[in-house]
Design a binder for these strands. Structure first.
Length: 419
RNA sequence: GUGGGCGUAGCUCAGCUGGUAGAGCACCCGGUUGUGGUCCGGGAUGUCGCGGGUUCGAGCCCCGUCGCUCACCCCA
């Protein structure tokens, strides 16, 4: 056992698993690009205040899960616990909202929360997210949801569900909160739970304990307090979702953990994961930009958890069996063969062929074994005969069939079907 | 922060009521002096997480400690 271990609770990916991780991330990014979103690449740390003001002081994320430290200039810095606040900081700073709207951005990378790790929950985890800024039409809500849905489908996932609700606008929430607080004050609950209710009474809807669920069964629902405008917006969203064939379930008890959400919010759950079954979620955040000092511009977005989506794909066995397959593996058997092999694979790589070769002096058998282990589609022996005649035999590693070819990059490209 | 489970070979794990370690897979060599997989033969590998205690004797029992893991809270 080595002396050093990775810090507690981080997810690490190395071959062969890292190929699956890479595939999942690339599919998610591809889906965002297909919908016209453009990359935004941001620092993994920000001024702490971006999160305390953006995400909200009362959230668990901010109050007890942030990696915060002082840098050498005495500034308070925090490793990003989520993506949206930082994106909004950049949008404001670079005036990205001053051009044509909506601004459509996607991002990916690691995020950090100092929580107790468990299955599907890590202290460093990976997300792909998108943000559509500057439009508050229901259409854009549906587009964001459908991008997530499309991404899951592209990965072959089936056993997931979409939950949606609406948090309404601030006046709807204010009215509901008054009644909810009154209702909760009539309940017999333990001190810790009441303390949570003080911070955000909505949290009690999310409690997994049966006694709390029972107590909350008759609690007033925010969905019943939506004013006309909010209600109309939410109904349009539902209609559009049905129209494009996206199944969903309205869940008025769904609670999101970040304070900036307003209006439409949603969550995707996967049925085959453990306690941490949320594979992605998001919603509208119409007050976030202004709370960070920007213009009063609305927005909506989501974050998808790559780690959890990978676990879901593995549970459903939905990933392709072969990933990053090697096209050609060269087995040189003499010194001259090695030199020729080097030259050949560098030429083929330039033409986009994935290729590798055997190193060392383990003989032909060893080199062929290496070809086999590499998972390559084709093998190619280069020895004195090949160099003398200029002919070689391309071998299909699956069927064993030998294909004659000239020993040059151009002819091999053709035989490999890469031309 | 709270609770449960688990730490034995590179990996997955077995190891009886205590008698100083094993399997499968993987790896290496050979059977095969120009073609891998299958098959056959051979081979290397362990401070049994760490520290202490009980015992003639501890992988196994007791105490402590560290780590991992699952769950609560919360979230991707």
């Amino acid at each position: 056992m080595s002396k050093f271990q990775a810090p507690k609770g981080v997810s690490e990916y190395y071959p062969p698993n890292s190929q699956q991780f890479e595939y999942v991330r690339d599919q998610l990014l591809r889906t965002a690009r297909l919908a016209g979103y453009k990359l935004i690449e941001l620092p993994v740390f920000e001024d702490t205040e971006v999160f305390t003001r953006g995400v909200g002081e009362s959230t668990d994320v901010v109050s007890k899960e942030m990696y915060t430290f002082e840098d050498r200039g005495g500034r308070s810095i925090t490793l990003r616990p989520e993506g949206t606040a930082g994106v909004m900081r950049a949008v404001i700073e670079h005036n990205l909202d001053k051009g044509q709207l909506p601004v459509k951005l996607f991002y990916t990378g690691p995020f950090f929360r100092a929580e107790r790790p468990q299955a599907g929950r890590y202290r460093q985890f990976y997300q792909v997210g998108i943000e559509a800024i500057g439009f508050n039409d229901p259409e854009i809500d549906v587009e964001v949801i459908s991008v997530a849905q499309t991404a899951f489908k592209a990965l072959g996932l089936k056993k997931f569900k979409l939950n949606i609700t609406s948090l309404g606008d601030s006046s709807s929430r204010e009215n509901h909160r008054k009644d909810l607080v009154k209702f909760i004050s009539g309940l017999k609950l333990d001190e810790a739970t009441l303390a949570r209710a003080q911070i955000n009474p909505l949290r009690l809807f999310d409690d997994k304990r049966e006694e709390v669920k029972a107590a909350m069964a008759k609690a007033p629902l925010l969905l019943d307090y939506l004013n006309k405008e909010s209600k109309q917006h939410f109904e349009t969203v539902q209609g559009l979702l049905k129209n494009i064939g996206i199944d969903f379930q309205i869940n008025p008890r769904m609670v999101r953990g970040l304070d900036y959400y307003t209006g439409t919010t949603f969550e995707f759950d996967h049925q085959m994961l453990g306690a941490q079954s949320g594979i992605g979620g998001g919603g509208r955040y119409d007050g976030l930009m202004s709370s960070l000092g920007g213009a009063d511009v609305s927005g909506i977005g989501f974050g998808l958890g790559i780690d959890r989506i990978l676990l879901a794909c593995q549970a459903e066995n939905s990933l392709p069996a072969e990933l990053n397959e090697i096209d050609l593996f060269v087995a040189p058997i003499t010194e001259a063969g090695k030199a020729a092999a080097f030259k050949l694979i560098s030429e083929l790589r330039l033409s986009g062929v994935t290729c590798d070769m055997a190193y060392g002096d383990r003989g032909l058998k060893g080199a062929m074994k290496a070809a086999d282990r590499s998972g390559a589609k084709y093998g190619l022996v280069i020895g004195d005969d090949e160099l003398a005649t200029g002919n070689c035999q391309l071998k299909s590693m699956s069927s064993g069939q030998l294909i004659s070819s000239n020993l040059d990059a151009s002819d091999l490209l053709e035989k490999l079907g890469k031309k």
